[in-house]
Amino acid sequence: MFLDCSAPKTLEGLAWASCYLTSGKHIDFYWAFVVVLALLACTAPMALMFGYGGATAARSHSLPVRMFGKCYIAMVRGIPDIIFFLFFVIALDQAIEWTKHQIVCPDWTEPVRQGLEFKVCPAAKVPQAGTAPVVHQIYGFGLAVVTFSIVFGAFVANVLYGAMNAVPRAQLETAEAYGMTHRQVHRRILVPQMWTYALPGLSNLWLILIKATPLLFLLGVRDIVYFARELGGSKTQAYEYPHPDWRLWYFLGLMAFYLLMTWGSEKVLRRLSARLSKGQATAAGEALRKAGAVA
């Protein structure tokens, strides 16, 4: 169906609604859902990687590595998210530009920090001045993914650290008795078995991560909560589609989206948990075994 939306103020009823819901700003709003899902898809594996690195470092036999791992976990976990998000992104952005500045502008004489200002040479700007706005958006999104991953990675690290310690020591000793090296024990015995202990903690983090995505707007990425507030706010005649305060409806829509996300995640996580408990020497594993024996 082709709609003529060129004069929205003359439209009424269904035609108005379909024009309204397909306006450019609404299309941006729908895209923001994709951005949120993309953020989750990028952040989850990356946070898991950071967490795994952090946990392994915290259990390392070398003191400096262990200190580093424990410091990372303690620091990030201890700092309120909102401070981290406000401070860290600007710091990360400036660190990238400062590093590039040192490389591309070695002859630059002016100080980079002038009072409250941060000025690198024009060639060291990331992204370069004059690049398309979409590049700036992708860069902003990248910063957001890294920041989210570092924050959630610290929590993941602590969960995995606990899970690694929960794997029965007897299992590891048996493996060592078979002549496996430390590395082999880690890879073949410890890591495959730790997941059943880690999953409850990780599933918590996943749900918290879903709910934390509105923090994206703090990082300059226009997310669904920003659009819901912006689109729902009452609009005067300066806009093409004037309407009263409709924020309630937009937020109800968001609520449905978030509930759907968490509900779907719960289902997947429950299956995953059953799968991982199979054959484990835990209460859940024992329950599965008994259920199997009866059937």
Binding site: P8, Y20, S23, G24, K25, I27, D28, A129, E230, T236, A238, Y239, E240, Y241
Partner: peptide, 18 residues
């Protein structure tokens, strides 16, 4: 690059086309 808030009609705002 010019920075603006985009939420203060008629000074600056995001129109329905985004």
């Amino acid at each position: 690059r010019l920075g603006t808030e985009g939420a203060y009609p008629p000074y600056n705002f995001i129109n329905d086309a985004g």
